[in-house]
């Protein structure tokens, strides 16, 4: 009997050692798996630029948002965007993290109007580049809003979705 009890205790302790999860996982507040961490928006836009075929582009920050787009910086948590600086191409890559999904939706509406205005200007100025504006990708993803005016907006979108 003693041997049986000893053996049973041994089995129990071994089972405990092999079946326990780390405390933080077992006692997670809601039992939900931890979220995948998103990259900073500056890294996302840089990855898009690096991964695509772009003309000369310069990086801009939240400080330039208001002057470039007239977009109120209130509600913008993180901002990164690239533009063609020389005035020779309409390419723009914008990734904003907003304070909420509602703010992101508002910003997306803003960018839709912006892209339409730019389309009118570029149609008269350089028609060969107009397709980039006609195929502009403007979308939201949770708190994120993006605008991709470039030769391959779908590729930019793919890189973005892999990063958030």
């Amino acid at each position: 009997m003693k041997r049986i009890k000893t053996l049973l205790l041994s089995v129990i302790f071994i089972s405990l050692l092999t079946s326990c999860k780390p405390a933080e996982d077992v006692f997670a507040s809601d039992g939900v798996a931890p979220e995948k961490e998103s990259k900073p928006v500056s890294e996302i836009t840089a990855a898009i630029i690096e991964g695509g075929d772009f003309p000369e582009m310069t990086a801009k920050t939240a400080d330039d948002l208001e002057y470039k787009y007239g977009l109120d910086a209130d509600g913008v948590v993180e901002a990164s965007f690239y533009v063609n600086p020389a005035g020779t191409n309409p390419d723009e890559i914008v990734v904003l993290k907003m304070a909420s999904a509602d703010k992101a939706a508002e910003a997306a509406e803003f960018f839709e109007k912006y892209a339409q205005e730019r389309l009118k200007s570029w149609r008269d100025y350089l028609p060969a580049e107009v397709y980039k504006l006609e195929n502009a990708v403007i979308e939201t993803n949770g708190d994120y809003v993006v605008m991709f005016i470039c030769g391959d907006g779908e590729k930019a979108k793919e890189i973005f979705e892999e990063s958030v």
Partner: peptide
């Protein structure tokens, strides 16, 4: 009893990504 509780929680919580 504790072993049973651990096993229950382990089996019912979602797998980590």
């Amino acid at each position: 009893i504790m072993l049973g509780i651990f096993l229950y929680v382990y089996m019912t919580s979602p797998l980590p990504a």
